[in-house]
């Protein structure tokens, strides 16, 4: 199984945990894995991207335009920002949440209306209100795991293995919450 997945969002939304979970899961499958993270300045509310790649042998840790089988977006504008990185037959899984970037807040730019409609005309989009589902699971911070639950739909890896990866990745006291969040995303 060769897969290239991008996790995109706004700094602070929890993409590092999602990529850690995904990396561990894929390694447990016996695959070669590379996960490229972003640390430092862009984490402060900026646009962030994490690349996850797996296969028999993975060389490059990054994904280029037209290279991602799947883009998991924590915020809908970020889905639009990275759309060119999607493969022709790839899918975007996106949270429908809107977080205004600073140029929108200051009035220097406008948040594009109906951005998901425009995206859907061009590529396959699987959109869900992950924030509400995460809140339902017990914490608005679990958006990342809700989206991982949705991503699992596109993988040929059993539900139990995902749960196992969650159990070994998140802090013990948050395991139940995250299992619930994963389930809500998976069954959405």
């Amino acid at each position: 199984m060769n897969k290239s997945i991008m996790i995109v969002g706004v700094g602070g939304q929890g993409s590092l945990l999602a990529s850690k979970l995904l990396g561990k899961l894929l390694m447990n499958e016996g695959l070669d894995v590379k996960v490229s993270e972003v640390h430092g300045m862009s984490q402060r509310g900026g646009s962030v991207v994490t690349y996850v790649r797996c296969g028999e042998k993975v060389y490059s840790p990054v994904i280029d335009k037209g290279g991602a089988d799947c883009i998991v977006s924590f915020e809908k504008l970020e889905a639009a920002r990275w759309v060119e990185y999607l493969k022709k037959d790839g899918v975007i899984i996106t949270n429908t949440q809107q977080i205004d970037p600073m140029p929108v807040i200051t009035g220097a730019a406008e948040y594009p209306e109906n951005i998901l409609d425009e995206l859907s005309e061009k590529v396959k989009v699987d959109a869900l209100d992950a924030l509400s589902l995460a809140t339902e699971a017990g914490s608005s911070k679990a958006v990342n795991i809700v989206l991982m639950g949705r991503l699992a739909k596109y993988f040929d890896i059993s539900y139990d293995k995902w749960i196992e990866a969650i159990e070994t990745t998140v802090a013990p006291k948050f395991v139940e919450l995250n299992k619930k969040a994963f389930e809500l995303g998976y069954n959405y």
């Binding site: 646009s47 504008l77 999607l86 022709k88 970037p101």
Partner: peptide
């Protein structure tokens, strides 16, 4: 790859 026409506003760190 596919593109969209709408310009996506920048999201610099804050």
């Amino acid at each position: 790859f596919d593109s969209i026409e709408t310009a996506v506003p920048m999201r610099p760190p804050v």
